[in-house]
Amino acid sequence: MSTVTTTPPAPAAGRSARNLVDMVFRARELSLVAALVVLVGVTAVANSNFLSGQGVKDILLNTSILALLAVGQSAVVMTRNIDLSVGSVVGLVAFTTGDFLSADHSRGIVSVVILGIAIGAACGLINGLLVSFCRVPALVVTLGTLYVIQGVDYYLAHGRQINAVDLPPGLLDLGNGSVLGVPYLPLITVLIMLAMGFYLRSYPSGREFYAIGSSPEAALLAGIPVRRRVLAAYLLSGALAGLGGVLWLARFGTVVADSANGWELLVVSAVVVGGVAITGGVGSVYGATLGALLLTTIGSALVVLRVNPFWQQAVTGALLLLAISVDRVLALRVARLLRRRNVRRV
């Protein structure tokens, strides 16, 4: 590499190395789409109801909240952190906002959305402060807040249940209505996903999320406000979980304390299956959303195919393992190829 080549080495080798890397990462999103197509195709052949209007709508609705959480989670994972508390935040917000609405029907939807996001953001703030300013390992912190928030939720709920009849129809309409045949929920998710994707790709502060995950030490030396960005990632994840909680309430109407219990696993799986590296720095919110769609579709397909529904969790876990293993093997292959090119270039 560092030889005394008098002519600049041909850039061709470098460019093809880049194309190779590009290809590998695109391949992730393409292979997700391919997996979806195969899955949907096979299931539809086995049971034509799967592709009925209602079937598709159900899948989209079910994906929406998971994908929303996955978008927030990918911002956190990109910075080489993790937020395991999102599931319990959804539960807490769904219950408290339900409580808030059923207490007084005149309260508007906007205020509920704001309340939900605020509660979520507050949880995110606590996580973010502990991780970024107190430098406590993210896994431990969010595992801790997962249980604290869940405990608070159970304490507030005290075994009660929020019923759809107690909620204003406007909110339930948000959860189940549609515009031009497209349900609101996926619409909201897609808009947020696009905005996040655009921000992360095209703005300097967005790129800094990737930079931090790619190398925290280098980020610090480059003068990137690491703590502020990590805090922002947690705030975002918390706020989106808060919004997710409100949407959960809107979609299901009937809510007990343990909404979205255990979803943290599902969300992390969606993100990782979607190609966001758990070691940070790599991936996109589009991939994460596709990951969420795939997991949800698998769940629906299992039901349609009359497979024991208890398989779903096992399949989710297996898929997560498959995704990280494939990523790793590919990364090793690419590294090997790049290394060879380096030698040839000398």
Binding site: L265, V268, S269, I278, A314, G317, A318, L320, L321
Partner: peptide, 18 residues
């Protein structure tokens, strides 16, 4: 495979429980 144990065991946590 040199994977982080955190990611692996989050996966197997779901798998084994499933």
């Amino acid at each position: 495979l040199g994977l982080p144990s955190l990611a692996v065991t989050i996966g197997t946590m779901a798998l084994y429980r499933g």
